[in-house]
């Protein structure tokens, strides 16, 4: 799989409840929206009614939070069936979920927990991504998560693990530069090392977001504008990956649609600068 499998949709934002009315009434120009799949994996009611109206006007890409490719437990077939029904509804060009685990023995954390980075776990995780991709019949991008802990059982770096998984699964990467930055600060590594090491031809989408800094830790809160160090990472990512669909996530203390959208559109400056650099 090459990033030509993932068309460049431009710069989008995450579709969030506080913006529904504005979007449906004003129909603002926006390249694309990312939806949280789970919010629409329901059998009826307002979520699907809103989604159908959005789909009439906009390109939508699905982003999931509960496939848990890193779970020791096998993939949940009933979950996949529901997801596939949504894929057919949205006609999403690809779908993404996180490189994480989140449940064990049928109990769910509803969190994006880091995976132990070992070769055997990489093989197991890649196999599950392949299963999901085969079943869903749509390309999958896996997203690097932000983390606050690293396992003692790790045998490789996170970027080595990510690379191993996506090569084995033959899938794409949703490169979250905010998560790279957050984890680099929490685990004392150079985020540019991470950026340079991942297989750039597999990057199908980029996430940007804000975070919150505490004394001892940075948390992935998605409740601020994108800070400058992260824009620098984004610029570097564009240099390596070229034009890739870019998406701003803003999930808490959500400002107006225009404020969120304008923050996302700052990405265009970096894309423009990239175009000015001679090949």
């Amino acid at each position: 799989m090459h990033n030509t499998s993932f068309p460049n949709l431009g710069v989008g934002i995450g579709l969030r409840v506080p913006h529904y009315r504005h979007i449906l009434e004003k129909k603002p120009v926006c390249d694309w929206f990312e939806i949280i799949s789970e919010n629409f994996m329901v059998d009826g009611g307002r979520p699907l009614a809103v989604l159908d109206q959005i789909l009439e006007q906009y390109r939508v890409v699905q982003h999931g939070v509960s496939m848990y490719f890193g779970n020791a437990d096998p993939i949940n077939r009933e979950h996949l069936k529901k997801l596939k029904r949504l894929v057919k509804r949205t006609n999403t060009p690809w779908l993404s979920d996180h490189l994480c685990w989140g449940s064990v023995n049928g109990r769910y954390s509803h969190d994006l927990l880091p995976i132990p980075y070992t070769m055997s776990v990489a093989k197991h995780t890649a196999q599950k991504i392949r299963q999901a991709q085969d079943f869903l019949e749509v390309p999958i991008c896996v997203e690097n998560v932000s983390s606050y802990a690293e396992f003692k059982q790790n045998e490789m770096t996170e970027w080595e693990f990510l690379s191993e998984v996506v090569e084995r699964a033959d899938c794409g990467i949703l490169l979250d530069v905010n998560n790279i930055y957050v984890s680099s600060q929490n685990h004392d590594f150079d985020p540019f090392d991470y950026l340079r090491a991942v297989p750039h031809h597999r990057v199908g989408q980029i996430h940007i977001a804000g975070h919150r800094r505490y004394d001892d830790i940075i948390l992935d809160t998605h409740d601020h504008p994108v800070p400058d160090p992260e824009w620098a990472l984004y610029a570097e990512a564009i240099q390596h990956c070229g034009h890739v669909s870019t998406l701003l996530e803003w999930d808490d203390r959500i400002p107006s649609f225009d404020e969120v959208h304008n923050e996302a559109l700052k990405a265009n400056q970096f894309i423009h600068d990239h175009d000015l650099v001679p090949a």
């Binding site: 954390s109 969190d111 606050y148």
Partner: peptide
């Protein structure tokens, strides 16, 4: 047994972040 300690936070503190997130989210 699980978590790598680092200068800023030890293993327990790091595990605690996830525990607090779990409870506060639910």
């Amino acid at each position: 047994a699980l978590i790598q300690p680092r200068a800023k936070l030890d293993s327990f503190d790091r595990l605690e972040i996830y525990a607090r997130q779990y409870w506060f989210r639910l």
